[in-house]
Amino acid sequence: MPTFNSQTLLQQLQGDVSSLLNVLHTRIMPQPHAALLSQPAPGGWSVIQCLDHLNSYGLYYLPQLEAALGKGEQLGLPAKPAFKSGWFGNYFTNMMQPRPDGALKSKMNAPKGHRPVPQPAAAQVLDEFAAQQQRLLQLLQRAGQTDIGRLRVPTSLTRLIKLSAGDTFRFLIAHEQRHMLQALRALLAATGNNHTAVSMQHLADV
């Protein structure tokens, strides 16, 4: 399993989240809600549905991460210079992480509890997503002060599988990147543009 410099990894993840917020504020929020609620094809998710799906994961994982970091702070667990990914954590992250060209390594159906409704409240979803990303940035900053390899977080699939806090951050942010690219494709389709030419570069150069 890969080993990372802990601080470098956390800084990279903070940069990834900041890029997602930049996409939200510069590409998505200026658009009319009608475009954001437009589905690219029957059964396809709109921009707002993609973000609503991500919000449902944030509602579970952000409190879990906060509790784990709080435990590390309470126990006085010092940060370690190196973080080694676990088997499950690395597998889930790689499964979610889009390729550089935006292609997905695997397709999957969203669990029942994380499927968005057909017409979510656009303003509420946008505000919630922005707030969750700010909270995620704060948690990443706190994570630099404790042992992200030792602290454990139960997955939303089953509490029997627990990931390290470091892998939970990696998985959660890779999942966000995956669906933000999906949201950008839906937006391009809604505005009459080529919705297939979306790569990871679109999450960096906005």
Rank of each mutant, 00 (worst) to 15 (best):
R135P: 00
S156K: 14
I148H: 07
G149P: 10
L136G: 04
L140H: 09
Q138R: 14
S156H: 13
Q134C: 02
L157P: 00
L136D: 02
T146G: 05
L139S: 05
R159I: 03
I148G: 07
P154K: 14
G144R: 11
R152P: 00
L160Y: 13
A143K: 13
L157N: 09
K162N: 10
Q134H: 15
L151G: 06
Q138Y: 06
L140M: 11
T155G: 08
L163V: 01
L157Q: 12
T146I: 02
T155H: 14
R152A: 09
S156A: 15
R142Y: 05
T155N: 12
T158K: 11
R150M: 06
L136M: 14
Q145D: 08
Q141V: 11
Q145G: 11
K162A: 04
G144I: 07
Q141Y: 02
Q134K: 15
Q141A: 14
L137T: 09
R142G: 04
S156V: 13
R135M: 05
V153A: 04
L137H: 07
Q138I: 02
Q134P: 01
R159L: 02
V153I: 13
G149R: 03
Q141H: 13
G144D: 10
L163S: 01
D147M: 02
R159M: 03
K162D: 00
L157V: 09
G144A: 14
L136A: 07
L160P: 01
L137M: 10
P154C: 07
T158V: 13
G149Y: 03
V153D: 08
Q141R: 14
R135I: 01
T146Q: 07
V153N: 05
V153R: 06
Q134W: 05
Q134R: 15
R142V: 03
K162C: 00
L163K: 04
D147A: 03
P154D: 10
R142K: 15
I148K: 06
A143W: 12
L151E: 09
R152G: 00
T146M: 03
L140W: 10
R135S: 12
L136K: 06
R150P: 01
I161R: 06
L140R: 08
L157D: 04
D147G: 05
R150I: 00
Q138G: 13
I148M: 06
L140K: 08
G149S: 09
R152C: 00
T146L: 03
L151I: 04
L160V: 13
R142P: 03
P154H: 12
P154W: 12
L139Q: 13
Q141P: 00
R142L: 09
R135H: 15
T155I: 08
L136W: 06
P154M: 08
S156C: 02
G144H: 11
T155P: 11
L140Y: 11
L163T: 00
T155A: 07
G144Y: 11
R150F: 04
L160T: 12
L140E: 07
I161D: 01
R142I: 04
S156N: 12
Q133S: 03
G144F: 09
S156D: 10
T158M: 05
G149M: 06
A143D: 12
Q133F: 01
L140V: 09
R152V: 02
R135A: 11
T158D: 08
D147N: 15
D147H: 04
